[in-house]
Design a protein around this nucleic acid. Structure first.
Lengths: 163, 163
DNA sequence: CAGTTGTTTTGAGTCAATCAAAACAGCAGA
DNA sequence: TCTGCTGTTTTGATTGACTCAAAACAACTG
């Protein structure tokens, strides 16, 4: 279980979060590392390939535990199912392709906490600012400028790994 | 049809958008005006009170037509069903209460299009930046500071009108 | 190595939203 | 004013994403 790949550190970060180390958790964490911004369904499919007994509910359970423990994070871009990523704690943002739904990370634009202070917060005590950029990814820019008419958009909602 | 209230303009804006003026559409638009950031379900409940024959699907249909025509807009804060508002075209943002889910509008923080240029857009052609602030609304600040233990949070996901 | 507690499996159910066909109603033209 | 075309709404079914709950199971503690 350690001859081939990266592990050990994965187990450690799970343990460090106060969680029991289990096969499904290791698998989900590894896949999350390789393919950030994955849906639960996608993680399930990948995990299941190497650990066939895993259930979808287990994946949801693992993800819930990870996010509660702070070693993973959930993002929910409009129009798509929830995505998960390991990168957590640094307030970074996301850019989503409106054509193929690819998601990339974006570091804070200004300083460290941009936009954290809205002009008028209506008396709210703001503690987080979440920015989502929408646009066309390089691939889709090429695709649309090449043949603007043939809008053969690649399956919008399926989450394409953030290449 | 103009003696009592605001109307006339509602029908006009529907017509101006190239849509047929119908009772469900007028009703939805009026309610949307009175209670911005409403869910389809909530609009349905309110509309149905004055127009009992209206179906939920009709409301979804009306909202789809409105958003496609650009006279209404859909926002989808994480963890809550889609919300709709008439305010459209000015890129404003939203602040959501993490306790009661109340939503308020927030004008652009910096200039007119804040954060529109991320530090590194990974080659994306950005065309929109959407900011969601999360925090505690005044009511919930009062409630939690008064009795931090008695976390009697008022039904989180039901969308509380933005007072 | 046995117990306890936390995980996962299995199975059912919920909520929000979408799809499709048939009934219906605006609105433009006769 | 009436007729029809076309776009809307109703009715009813279905999907997708996620949650709940009970029972089987497996990590870690002692």
């Amino acid at each position: 279980m350690r001859a081939d790949e990266p592990p050990r550190t994965l187990a450690d970060s799970i343990r460090a979060a106060g969680l029991k180390v289990t096969a499904p958790r290791l698998a989900v964490l590894r896949v999350l590392d390789q393919a950030p911004h994955s849906t639960a369904e996608r993680l399930f499919a990948t995990v299941r390939a190497e650990l066939p007994s895993t259930s979808l509910q287990a994946v949801y359970g693992v993800l819930a535990a990870f996010t509660a423990a702070g070693i993973a994070q959930k993002i929910e871009p409009a129009g798509s199912p929830a995505l998960f990523e390991r990168r957590v704690g640094d307030n970074h943002h996301h850019i989503v392709c409106t054509r193929c739904s690819a998601v990339h990370d974006v570091d804070c634009a200004v300083g460290q906490a941009p936009c954290l202070t809205p002009a008028h917060a209506s008396g709210f005590a703001v503690h987080t600012a979440e920015v989502t950029y929408w646009g066309l990814c390089p691939d889709c820019q090429a695709a649309t400028s090449a043949s603007p008419s043939l809008l053969s958009a690649p399956a919008p909602l399926s989450n394409k790994g953030a290449r």
